[in-house]
Design a protein around this nucleic acid. Structure first.
Lengths: 206, 206
DNA sequence: CGATCTATTGACACTCTGCCAAGAACGCCT
DNA sequence: AGGCGTTCTTGGCAGAGTGTCAATAGATCG
């Protein structure tokens, strides 16, 4: 199978070793599911003893959580330096930047949205929840609706629900190829605007 | 822990035994995650030897797939006997029935939409995909758009993307309580109509 | 009541994980 | 350069879970 290198042990800085193992873990967990990836495999590919992985991360589960955390990082650049024009224009730009990020980190994004044990695992849920909150803030900022007070929670919930559509639409684009990037751009932009400008007032006042 | 019953073995019809085991598995997999449920536990609660579970289902994984299949069944009643009025009215009824089903099978639905290994596991994906296709047919039927030819695949992809929002919105309703049932009703109905009547033409002609 | 069928079980082999003491590489001080 | 402590790294052990198969026992039929 793989080439046998690393005949003798090499001592490394903890941070470097940790990063090396984490990199391998991210690649493997990204490519296959949790249950089918073993610590032994990660250790082998990192050229390291199996026990060392547990030593650095405390166990398989915690290593996995670390990988998930890294994958869910939403780049702040998506909603930075937006021109002070209409909400439509700003959201359009925001969506476009986001699609750019997704296209570049294709595999990582697909792994992140197809995570295991969603809804069953409190810690995974917590991580995803925090990521969703950040993403929601970005959208509201772009839509210039950070200052709504009445029905604020309903609005945020709607944006989170919309991110569910975003994830499903991403799969349609990247995996099935049923939608193009510009299709997603149109659909996501219009849907956000529709939710914010039409549906939200109906919920708030109804 | 559990009461020790079933001191002696009882021989049952294969179908009955199979159904009994499947019932226990559905309950346990619905309540906790795949990795934390063991075959031994399922066998114990079913009052049966561990090997019998493997005998009937061929292994833990296949038993799990069987459970998933059962959970994803979309009742046909949702889109049956819809009155021949406007698309708005029909979709509104359809959404309402659907919310009724979800509310009744709360735990099962939450388990189903929070499945493990989504996007990593071809067989799980296949099951979810088939379920999505059926659900899409139901929606298009309600919207009276079963006969579109141009851009048919784009339209279906959009509906599938919308079901991603539906799932996320369900979580907001059932888990977080940030949205009410009537909120979902309004949001989902209006969003489907917006996608079908406004966004879809833009994609098709753009 | 005995023969037969097959649902059911106990046990074995294998894989994977967490854990711990022993070993080896590196930096430091004289 | 050489010895020495630090700590990075490893091999091995115990426990848990799974798949498999021959053996067992409950039900049915002549």
């Amino acid at each position: 199978m793989g080439v046998q290198r690393q005949a003798q042990r090499r001592r490394m800085e903890p941070d470097a070793r940790r990063a090396e193992i984490l990199g391998v873990a991210r690649r493997l967990f990204g490519a296959r599911s949790y249950g089918t990836v073993s610590i032994a495999e990660i250790a082998a590919e990192a050229g390291v003893a199996r026990a060392l992985v547990s030593h650095y991360f405390g166990g398989k589960r915690q290593l996995y959580l670390e990988v998930v955390r890294q994958m869910m990082v939403v780049p702040a650049s998506v909603s930075e330096r937006l021109p002070p024009t209409t909400a439509e224009e700003r959201i359009s730009i925001c969506v476009d930047r986001w699609l750019e990020v997704v296209e570049r980190n294709r595999e990582m994004w697909l792994s992140a949205i197809g995570l295991e044990a969603l809804g069953n695992d409190p810690e995974i849920d917590q991580i995803m929840l925090e990521a969703d909150e950040i993403a929601t803030d970005r959208v509201l900022e772009a839509a210039m609706m950070t200052d709504v007070s009445e029905g604020r929670e309903k609005l945020r919930a709607m944006i989170r629900a919309h991110s569910g559509m975003l994830k499903a639409a991403s799969r349609e684009w990247l995996v099935r190829g049923a939608l193009s990037r510009s299709d997603l751009h149109v659909m996501l932009t219009r849907t956000v605007l529709h939710l914010v400008h039409t549906v939200f007032p109906a919920l708030r006042d109804g």
